[in-house]
């Protein structure tokens, strides 16, 4: 049986608002096993991104227990979460979040910017991932000159260059056309085959086939049985 990367046990998340607390996630119980490609779908405002933020250690749960790589992270402070996040989590954003005045190479290398102990072979790792994603020939181009599909591939390259325990992707095809979306999904599929665990949120139900499992988020509940 494969070990779990992320385990949510009765996790809830509440945001304060002028009209009172708003519960965005309600008693979520979910386990993501190593090597899985989990797709999360659901309508807008259902709590998908909030769950993704908890999974990528960018935010805290209000109640419940959250385990990441067999470590209870529910009570960790921000610095401790930051230390785990920078080594073990790769994140792909819908808006790419690239440094537009830097080259593809510099953007991918930026993944190592805040690492305390940088691996010896970061150059080779970067070259390898750029090759894998078909970006090696344009590595010195500034990202502001790239198409949306290429930008998203750069963002994926940056997220996976460190080979994270968990790759979290928040609607990575949201800004792409069909062709680019499928190209990007093929990248994810390839990375998953290479052993990277992926948690991905999407609105596009045509992409669900790329995942190995699918859960739906509705009104803050995540149905793990689907």
């Amino acid at each position: 049986m494969k070990p779990s990367i992320l385990t949510a046990n009765n996790v809830s998340k509440t945001f304060p608002s002028p009209c009172g607390d708003v519960q965005v996630l309600r008693h979520v119980n979910l386990t993501i096993k190593e090597g899985e490609f989990l797709m999360v779908t659901g309508p807008s405002g259902s709590g998908k991104t909030t769950f993704l933020n908890l999974a990528s250690l960018l935010d805290y749960s209000t109640t419940g227990r959250l385990e990441f790589d067999n470590e209870d992270i529910s009570n960790l402070n921000e610095d401790q979460l930051c230390n785990i996040r920078k080594d073990k989590v790769g994140i792909v954003f819908q808006k790419f979040c690239l440094l537009s005045y830097r080259s593809i190479w510099e953007n991918v290398m930026f993944r190592f910017r805040y690492l305390d102990n940088k691996p010896d072979n970061i150059q080779k790792q970067t070259e390898r991932i750029l090759c894998l994603l078909g970006l090696d020939t344009i590595a010195q181009q500034p990202v502001r000159l790239l198409s949306s599909g290429e930008r998203q591939r750069v963002a994926i390259a940056r997220a996976v260059v460190l080979r994270p325990k968990l790759l979290v992707a928040d609607e990575p095809t949201g800004n792409l056309d069909d062709e680019s979306s499928h190209s990007v999904m093929q990248c994810f599929e390839q990375l998953n085959k290479d052993g990277i665990t992926i948690l991905m949120v999407t609105h596009d139900k045509t992409l669900l086939d790329y995942g190995s499992r699918h859960v739906e988020c509705k009104n803050g509940y995540i149905d793990d049985e689907k």
């Binding site: 960018l58 996040r85 979040c97 930026f110 805040y114």
Partner: peptide
């Protein structure tokens, strides 16, 4: 602000 978010996501502390 997006860049700040990216840096924090990649492991930058508040001090950084």
């Amino acid at each position: 602000i997006e860049e700040i978010g990216l840096r924090r996501a990649l492991g930058a502390s508040r001090m950084d």
